[in-house]
């Protein structure tokens, strides 16, 4: 019988540490699939963030490094500038990329570094137990906004739209994981972002709306529904730049 689908070579066959219904596992697999399809496993270097996805290297079968919280794009800049022949990407959550690391994010993008960023927006800090993120929706309850986020605590930060204003940025797209069709779209966007780097087009970022049932305090299906109903209204999907 002909084999038509299998685990990508870039993904280890291991048990997941992520919670049931978490989006990281899906995105890890999408990245691994894209790396396989583009045949770049032997020249890809990943920069893992501080957050739930710090352990990404337990799943990816290629070179990886950790970075201090928020500093992934500074680390990636150092690697890519010294090894322009490699394909370097960061994988960052909303707290890492859009709160503690906003400065690095904006300036790396503004320099037009030839890098790829996979930005997971799940509207919450996961690893530390569900605190308010820069992308938390107004009214959303977290452990640090127990009565729901108010305007004074900041409105959901649309970092992708901000970055799209910068001349150094080549490509920004927002995708989601809430239906199988959306997952297919997400894979296309991830592939595009890697392809851009291979073609030396400059800075590319894919923002992915991703479920966190554990800290949204709901079931996996309810989390997908919540993305469809609320998150995509605040964070519209599609090509931003």
């Amino acid at each position: 019988m002909k084999k038509i689908y299998s685990r990508p070579q870039s993904l280890y066959d291991v048990v997941t540490h992520y919670c049931p219904g978490c989006g990281h596992g899906i995105v890890h697999k999408l990245v691994a699939q894209v790396v396989d399809e583009l045949q770049i496993r032997e020249k890809v270097i990943a920069v893992a963030p501080v957050g739930c996805a710090v352990l990404a290297y337990d799943y990816w079968n290629f070179d990886c490094t950790e970075a201090a919280h928020g500093r992934a794009l500074a680390v990636a800049t150092g690697i890519k500038r010294m090894r322009p022949e490699t394909v370097v990407f960061t994988y960052q959550g909303d707290g890492d990329l859009a709160a503690i690391g906003t400065n690095e994010t904006i300036h790396t993008a503004n320099r037009g570094e030839n890098l790829t960023t996979i930005f997971i927006n799940n509207a919450v800090y996961g690893m530390t137990g569900g605190q308010m993120a820069p992308t938390t929706l107004l009214g959303q309850k977290t452990t640090t906004t127990p009565h729901g986020r108010k305007e004074q605590e900041g409105r959901p930060l649309k970092i992708s739209e901000l970055l799209a204003q910068l001349e150094g940025v080549y490509y920004v797209e927002r995708v989601s994981l809430h239906t199988p069709q959306q997952v297919i779209n997400a894979q296309k966007a991830i592939k595009q972002a890697f392809q851009n780097q291979i073609e030396e087009k400059g800075f590319s970022l894919v923002e992915i709306l991703s479920p966190c049932p554990t800290y949204w305090n709901c079931s996996a299906q309810e989390a997908m529904d919540w993305i469809a109903e609320f998150m995509v209204k605040e964070f519209p999907l599609g090509r931003i730049k």
Partner: peptide
């Protein structure tokens, strides 16, 4: 490679990256 970084934090972490790359 010379980079004027956006902050001391960025500078030391760029150094981290370049060092991780073996330079």
């Amino acid at each position: 490679v010379f980079i004027q970084a956006e902050s001391e934090l960025a500078a030391i972490n760029m150094v981290f990256g370049a060092s991780a790359a073996g330079f």
